[in-house]
């Protein structure tokens, strides 16, 4: 059997149009069915919540079975509480593969859980083949290398990269109406866990009032910009073409720009008419926040930078040499 942990939005985040179940869960359901159809394995979803029914309703068409654990202490995700419960369930069920999203929750939980279960774990996978062995594909070296990794035994656990599979709800080839069998599982928890770990709340990174998601033109800088003193030149250029300045995470980490300028998985997702990427390598976490831009121009001195696989136009060259020249050309064109 294939088991997957359903990841849900917290109640405040979920709007009626979105529902509670996160995209990553629907994506993992697609993957689970790919494997299930080949091996005739049932697909079992694991739902932990203070209120399982709305979640069950969203996914029951796509699962053979749903195992629900319902308790007030499961209102918000918390590794220290989820882990012992999932440990009990998975050690009973022994699914051939257990899937967890490679998300903020999954990266906190999966390595801990795999270790207490004694399961091999392969993280951040974007492709999976299950024959007599489990073979997965994943990126290494910031996307410059793909690794094929095998698990030396089964069962095993994987965490799945967001966006690697189509959502099962959007896939026309999957027409499932499984009407899952729903099982409620009781559980026991060592009460001291509540003293060891307490969920206090969700927070948000403070903003400075600039909303890069509304910009039509974005000029984004990465570590290739080298020094903070080079930023004004780029900012001026951005102003000339009516663009907004944005950046990669290392620029934020260095304190060169405020956090609300960050594009990517832990920043903002943008979709401007034009995105100009300057000295940006194109790590997955960055690309996932800008790949749907209408036109992408990238300037990078490394011809093998992964950014060129999403850019429509590329320039291999030194951004610090090209930008002053380009800024002048723009001024000339504007007359």
């Amino acid at each position: 059997m294939i088991a997957l942990l359903i990841e849900t939005r917290n109640i405040n985040e979920a709007s009626t149009s979105q529902g509670r179940v996160k995209d990553i869960s629907f994506e993992m359901l697609t993957l689970a069915h790919q494997i299930s159809q080949q091996h005739n394995y049932p697909v079992i979803a694991l739902v932990l919540s203070n209120n399982c029914q709305p979640i069950v309703d969203e996914i029951k068409q796509y699962c053979h079975e749903i195992i629900c654990v319902e308790d007030n202490c499961l209102e918000n995700f918390n590794t220290q509480i989820y882990q012992p419960i999932l440990h009990q369930i998975i050690s009973e069920l022994k699914p051939t593969i257990t899937m967890i999203g490679h998300s903020g929750f999954g990266t906190d939980l999966a390595p801990y859980l795999a270790t207490t279960l004694g399961l091999p774990l392969i993280t951040d996978v974007f492709d999976v083949e299950l024959n007599s062995t489990l073979l997965v594909r994943r990126q290494m070296y910031g996307g410059k290398i793909i690794a094929e990794v095998i698990s030396k035994m089964l069962p095993a656990m994987i965490t799945v990269r967001a966006g690697s599979f189509e959502k099962i709800t959007a896939s026309p080839s999957v027409n499932l109406n499984l009407s899952a069998k729903v099982t409620k599982k009781p559980f026991t928890l060592d009460q001291t866990i509540f003293e060891k770990s307490k969920f206090l709340g969700y927070g948000e990174v403070p903003t400075t009032g600039i909303d890069i998601t509304k910009a039509d033109v974005i000029v984004a800088i990465g570590r290739g910009i080298k020094e903070q003193k080079n930023i004004p030149l780029i900012e001026q250029f951005a102003n000339e073409i009516g663009g907004t300045l944005a950046c990669t995470r290392p620029i934020i980490d260095a304190g060169w720009l405020p956090k609300d300028r960050q594009v990517g998985s832990s920043g903002k997702t943008v979709k401007p008419k034009l995105y100009i990427a300057l000295g940006i390598s194109g790590a997955f976490q960055h690309i996932s926040g800008m790949k749907n831009s209408e036109t992408i121009i990238a300037v990078n001195k490394d011809p093998e930078a992964p950014i060129f696989s999403v850019a429509h136009y590329g320039v291999v060259g030194d951004v610090l040499k090209i930008m002053p020249v380009l800024a002048n050309k723009i001024k000339e064109l504007k007359g």
Partner: peptide, 10 residues
């Protein structure tokens, strides 16, 4: 977490 969201815990 994703998209600038934080989980705060003790």
């Amino acid at each position: 977490l994703e998209g600038g969201l934080l989980e705060i815990k003790e």
